[in-house]
Simulated assay, not measured.
Amino acid sequence: MILITGATGNYGGLTIKHLLNKGVAANQIVALVRDEAKAQDLKDKGVELRIGDYDNVESLKTAFQGIDQLLFISASDVEKRLPQHENVMEAAKAAGVGHIVYTSFERQNNTSSSPIAFVAEAHLRTEELLKESGISHTILRNNLYMDFVPVFIGEQVLDQKNIYLPAENGKAGFVLREDMAEATAQILVNEPQETQVLEFSNEENYSYQDVADAISKVTGTQINYTSPSVEEYTSTLLGLNVPEGYVHMFAGFAKAQADGELAVSSTTINDLLGRKATTLEEFVNTVYGK
């Protein structure tokens, strides 16, 4: 049995879709949900629903019974992530889960000096917990979702004709979330038995100048790219009443990209998909094409 956490979220839902597409029987898939009403579509397909909450370790212990493979999708709440992950690991050990596939993150700097240290802490500790657990596991070092590029550059980019981010000339191995989910499904289909760490980065890496050029080509509108200092960027966005949490998150990931933390080239996803991962140009055409 394969259990997917976060089954009503984007990554979990897409992974289930691809498991079914790859021929995994619906009755061999378990969806962990907090609210059954939000997963009626999965139930209609024959997927088993189990109620569980990362904040409730006993619910997880019950939900994980009889599970051979667990897709452990990292929690979305950064502040609560570590205790929630500790609950998942405690429950997985108690239930005797066979193998865990964990969605971690790409990085080059594991220290507190990293501009994305606020993201790193829980992931690094969770990787330690996996190693200490004695359970065989696959750690996916996921690079940035390509889907987030429009969020980082802002929905007014075509009107403003400028991308404004302190990422300098740094590049990132952006990967489309759908491609990550399909590759994750393939790992589960392959039923891994050994512990492994896989780089989920695109073979091609992209800067925000590349993003500007791609949008310019697709739309016929010249889009420029400006890389201010982190201080200027932060001051400017706060002055525009952008919520402080978002400003610091955007600035942190941009600085990490400038520092080369996200510049990782890998063919792992290509190999799992049996094709080349979606390119920036293909994605931009889908989002901004006429």
Rank of each mutant, 00 (worst) to 15 (best):
S59K: 07
Y102S: 14
Q69I: 09
N87Y: 05
V78P: 08
G46L: 05
N56D: 15
N109P: 05
F64V: 00
M89K: 11
Y102E: 13
A91T: 05
D68P: 00
L60D: 02
L60S: 01
N56T: 00
K80R: 15
S76W: 08
N110G: 11
K93W: 07
I73T: 01
G46D: 06
N109H: 06
A95H: 03
T62M: 04
V101S: 01
R81G: 08
Q65P: 02
V88I: 12
S76N: 12
D55I: 00
S59E: 06
V78W: 11
V88K: 00
Q108R: 13
K80I: 04
G66Q: 05
N87D: 05
Y102I: 14
L49E: 03
S104N: 12
Y102N: 14
P83I: 11
M89T: 14
E48F: 01
D44H: 08
H99N: 12
H99D: 09
G98R: 08
I116G: 03
E90N: 12
N87L: 03
E90D: 14
Y54K: 02
Q65F: 00
T111R: 09
F72I: 10
L82T: 15
E106C: 15
V101W: 02
I67E: 01
P83V: 09
K43D: 04
E86V: 14
I100F: 10
F72K: 03
I100L: 07
P83G: 12
K61H: 04
I116Y: 01
V119C: 11
D68E: 15
D44V: 06
N87T: 05
G98V: 00
S74F: 00
D53H: 05
E58Q: 09
D44E: 15
T103N: 02
K43S: 11
A91G: 13
T111N: 09
G98F: 09
T111A: 07
P83L: 12
A75D: 12
T111L: 08
F64I: 00
Q108M: 14
G96W: 02
L49P: 01
E86N: 11
V47P: 08
A75M: 03
L82M: 14
D53R: 02
D77M: 08
Q65K: 14
P115W: 12
A75C: 05
A92K: 07
E90A: 15
V78K: 05
P115M: 13
A75S: 15
V88Y: 03
V47C: 07
E48W: 00
V78L: 14
P83E: 10
A92I: 09
K45F: 08
Y54N: 04
G96Y: 03
G98P: 02
D77F: 14
V57L: 04
A94R: 07
R107Y: 12
I73D: 00
R50M: 06
L70W: 06
G52K: 00
V88D: 00
I116A: 05
D77R: 06
Y102F: 15
A94M: 07
Y102P: 13
V119M: 15
E106R: 06
S76T: 13
A75V: 05
F64R: 01
K45I: 10
D44R: 08
G66P: 04
E79G: 04
F105W: 08
V101N: 00
H85D: 07
N56M: 03
Y54W: 07
N87C: 07
Y54R: 01
T62H: 04
I51S: 02
H85M: 10
I51W: 00
E106H: 02
